[in-house]
């Protein structure tokens, strides 16, 4: 029972997270107070959600470097809508955020699926295209707190059954992704084309359509996080979440998602994002100078990636799998 639990990489990561929490707790006990832990989690929700977006694409053998720019554009678009038409109900804005994000994702997806553009190149390009579009719709200006309606600003903070709405969004996203990846045909097809696109096609998967869907899914989640981001930080600007795309890739890889596609779990990806979130927050709490934080983060990411790969390979050898990376 225990050995089976430990053989799963998710549990390894879970144990590492517990050790990390204890270690930080020894240095700064207040980090383990429930309120502080909750706020750490709250800080991490957006990273978790965006890692879910990244997961859908990476599992299918792609990568989406445009998630952060998508977030910035959709965030700016919804913030501008709220500024210009304060009467638009928030629920409609949520739907719009999903739709705008999905549309941007569809642009990526269609050119990847039917135009033959490699995902990394397509999303590298739209990373700067979408960010440029933020400038086009905003004219370079910011939308700041006083230009947003109070209802808009309170989206993430409204409590529902004792939990802020932001966390609910996170939980629902995780739940939807969990069901989608594990219990639906689309989920299985995503794994299939990520593992071996040719075989997937031969057994009748519409590989192009599936790839397209992976980007639409990723875009929709990124769009939703855009709305949450600008309402949470009460500011929409050109540089919103710049550079965040690589953090989501790092979180997914730490969570055991294979960057080559075909394997990786929702729970693993969530744990990867939580791990990264705790590291970032813990560094603040134990008083590490902000100037040291990027370097420590980088080292932690590197070590986690190496550890994951090594553990993974050992497990595969033990299970007699022939898929030991060449």
């Amino acid at each position: 029972m225990l050995s089976k639990f430990l053989a799963q990489r998710e549990s390894t990561l879970f144990v590492i997270i517990i050790i990390l929490l204890v270690a930080v707790g020894l240095r700064a006990p207040r980090f383990l107070e429930p309120g502080r832990l909750l706020s750490t989690l709250n800080d991490t929700v957006i990273l978790i959600m965006l890692t879910m977006a990244q997961l859908a694409v990476i599992v299918s053998g792609g990568i989406d470097l445009s998630v952060a720019s998508n977030l910035a554009f959709t965030g700016m678009a919804t913030a501008l809508l709220n500024f210009m038409f304060p009467g638009v109900p928030i629920v409609l804005l949520v739907v719009l955020a999903l739709a705008i994000g999905a549309a941007l994702g569809a642009f990526n997806g269609s050119l990847v699926a039917w135009g033959g553009v490699p995902p990394i190149i397509m999303t590298l390009a739209t990373m700067s295209v979408f960010r440029g579009m933020v400038y086009l719709i905003s004219g370079g200006a910011w939308v700041s707190a006083h230009q947003m309606t109070p209802a808009f600003r309170s989206i993430p903070r409204v409590g529902l059954l004792g939990m802020p709405l932001l966390m609910w969004f996170g939980f629902v996203t995780i739940a939807v992704m969990y069901v989608l990846m594990n219990n639906t045909r689309l989920g299985r097809e995503l794994y299939a084309i990520g593992d071996n696109e040719r075989s997937a096609r031969l057994v009748g998967v519409n590989t192009r359509l599936t790839r397209f869907k992976s980007f639409v899914l990723s875009g929709a989640i990124a769009g939703l996080t855009g709305l949450l981001w600008v309402s949470r930080y009460a500011s929409a600007q050109n540089q919103t979440a710049a550079g965040f795309e690589l953090e989501t890739v790092a979180a997914a890889v730490i969570g055991g998602v294979s960057i080559m596609g075909g394997s990786g779990s929702v729970i693993g990806a969530v744990l990867g994002a939580v791990f990264l979130g705790i590291v970032k927050n813990a560094l603040n709490v134990i008083g590490v100078s902000p100037f040291f934080q990027l370097g420590i983060q980088g080292a932690v990411i590197l070590i986690a990636i190496i550890a994951n790969t090594v553990i993974d390979r050992r497990t595969q050898v033990r299970l007699g799998s022939r898929r030991v990376a060449a």
Binding site: I120, V253, I259, G298, T309, V310, R313
Partner: peptide, 18 residues
């Protein structure tokens, strides 16, 4: 360690600049 270079260099990017 046979880790894909894209994953490694995303990490080392932060490390070097950090």
């Amino acid at each position: 360690f046979r880790v894909p270079s894209i994953a490694v260099t995303i990490g080392s990017m932060s490390l070097f600049r950090g």
